[in-house]
Write a protein that binds this DNA or RNA. Structure first.
Lengths: 154, 154
DNA sequence: TATTGTTATACTCTATAACTATA
DNA sequence: TATAGTTATAGAGTATAACAATA
């Protein structure tokens, strides 16, 4: 019998909300939100992303991202410039201040994750990440099903 | 070297957002939000919860829950009544319509999860759930650290 | 005094769509 | 026509605090 509290979406949401809340408190002294942290960390990993890439990467909706980047440009954390090769497209980059903050916060995030998994073996941590990736890949099947089967017909 | 895109919070968020979006589309024909589904499914599993229990269970903030329950009472899905034993406390229960919807949606959720994990062995699924639970338990250590160590001092 | 829940406010996010500019 | 991004709006969420009622 299926129970909410042992379902994968429930467990994901519960852990994600909890970890997000705790890390958000870490970000508060820097005047940053979790979304801003994700943008900084994403750009530190992959500089010069387009707005749409950044939205996909961070699971933040495109129009939200557009406004968020405006805020972050105003705060001196990132730059936004049109591409010479395609004038529809913008390229987002870290400023030096953005890089400085990103380095600090990524170190905090690493420590934070280390503590969170301190009761697990390295093999378990690898397994967890691998399984999360595999389920994510399988969501494409779910999406395909959505378009073929009507709701209530399951 | 720590990378955002292989970090646990990132992978959790990415998968959680994705699964949430897809399941939300399933709920749309019923006029329900994901939060409402969680309340219905939580009450189906554990009837007669207090408002605070329900908020903890579903990771929905208490004041949000209070308003959400008002909406759901109005929609005829749940009832809210004060406890005779403690007049501060309210007990939330499913109406028969709420029970009917909950049964349908839980069946949908089960199918949905089955598809999402269809590429995984049963052992892997159990392992995933177990690891998510273990990391959740370890977040108490994170919370304790928050009160003792100052930000930036990691 | 502490607990439980309600209400109010400001801010943020999502979903959606309309719009601009460019390809 | 399709793509990339911006802007606007409605609805819902969070965070926070003030508040009422009860224990």
């Amino acid at each position: 019998m299926y129970r909410l509290t042992t379902s994968i979406p429930y467990l994901l949401n519960r852990l994600g909300v909890r970890m997000g809340e705790l890390f958000s408190r870490r970000l508060q002294p820097y005047g940053l939100t979790l979304a801003m942290y994700r943008v900084l960390a994403s750009l530190a990993e992959q500089p010069g992303q387009r707005l749409g890439d950044l939205a996909d990467m961070t699971s933040i909706e495109l129009s939200t991202m557009s406004r968020l980047i405006s805020t972050m440009v105003g705060a001196g954390l990132v730059t936004r410039k049109r591409l010479p090769t395609d004038d529809r497209t913008v390229s987002i980059d870290l400023t030096s201040e953005g890089q400085r903050l990103a380095a600090i916060l990524i170190a905090e995030a690493q420590h934070y994750e280390d503590v969170a998994v301190s009761q697990l073996s390295d093999a378990d941590v690898r397994q967890l990440k691998s399984l999360l990736g595999e389920v994510y890949a399988a969501t494409d099947i779910l999406e395909a099903e959505l378009s073929t089967s009507a709701p209530g017909r399951l």
